[in-house]
């Protein structure tokens, strides 16, 4: 219920925030006359919203299904932090190792589907989630869905759509202060995977993969659709970095941080990391 109420708040803000910029000129002058006249003009919108809200209140009950994002490397759970890294073998039975220090990515536009039909979709600014291996709370995404709906697939985007990219400053998980934004070639970074491996020929043997880009020719948000077989209260989504990284990349391509053709290819590869774990 809380979720729907906050959606209504968003709706109101869109309509009420400075009508002077969205209304035709003859209305602008009238509205600029004073706040009381403006308030009068907004009464129909207000009444409409009261009606909408009461309809919502009558809506069927909701239940919470939790998306549990599990950043893993093969069978090892990835944990990162200021003083935490996750060390793993690149392949079992070999001596090649790597340490992951940073693994985070955007999950957006989550939808539940019955075969090819979308049954429910998360919308609004709250539908952008930054899953970060260093922040356990960020790996639990509650979805408030109508009770009893049938679905057999979950779909979501890895990254941020171009419309959101093209807009101005945003807050919450989309705040540029989260470090998931390129300053020198503006746009969101969809996924960051960083660490080190003796295989890397770079400074301090580090590797850095920053995937992103939304302009023509570099658009790399990935749409992911996964089957959901059992209707548990939790859907585990594994993000297995071992599907993304391989020996050859660590040796020859330890840094990839520029939007373009190659990062677009790597993003497709990153989409393969995801599977439903339960």
């Amino acid at each position: 219920m809380a979720n729907q109420a906050s959606d209504n708040q968003n709706l109101q803000i869109v309509y009420l925030t400075d009508p002077a910029f969205i209304l035709p000129n003859h209305l602008k002058a009238w509205l600029n006359d004073g706040i009381y006249k403006r308030a009068i003009a907004l009464i129909p919108i207000y009444l409409g919203l009261v009606l909408l809200s009461s309809l919502n209140a009558k809506a069927q009950g909701l239940e919470t299904v939790s998306l549990q994002i599990m950043p893993v490397f093969g069978n090892t759970i990835i944990k990162t932090g200021d003083e935490t890294i996750t060390k793993v073998r690149l392949e079992s039975g070999t001596k090649d190792s790597l340490a992951i220090s940073n693994f985070r990515f955007y999950i957006s536009g989550t939808r539940l589907m019955l075969n090819n039909e979308t049954i429910w979709a998360e919308a609004g600014i709250g539908s952008y989630h930054l899953a970060d291996a260093s922040k356990p709370a960020s790996l639990q995404i509650p979805l408030n869905i109508p009770k009893g709906i049938a679905y057999n697939r979950i779909a979501f985007n890895l990254g941020i759509d171009s419309l959101t990219n093209a807009g101005g400053a945003k807050g919450g998980s989309l705040d540029a202060a989260n470090g998931m934004y390129w300053a020198w070639h503006s746009g969101y970074i969809n996924m960051i995977l960083e660490g080190s491996s003796p295989l890397c020929k770079t400074r301090k043997h580090g590797f850095q993969y920053h995937l992103g880009g939304f302009r023509q020719g570099e658009y790399c948000m990935q749409k992911i659709v996964l089957p959901v077989n059992n209707k548990a209260a939790t859907i585990q989504i594994k993000a297995d970095a071992s599907v993304f990284i391989n020996r050859e990349m660590l040796v020859n391509e330890a840094n990839s941080m520029t939007p373009g053709k190659r990062v677009t290819e790597l993003s497709k590869k990153a989409a393969g990391m995801f599977s439903v774990g339960n």
Binding site: A5, Q9, L16, Y46, V50, S53, S54, N56, A57
Partner: peptide
């Protein structure tokens, strides 16, 4: 709440 909330925000 649904009556008061929109009024407040308004």
């Amino acid at each position: 709440i649904y009556l008061i909330l929109p009024a407040f925000i308004f």
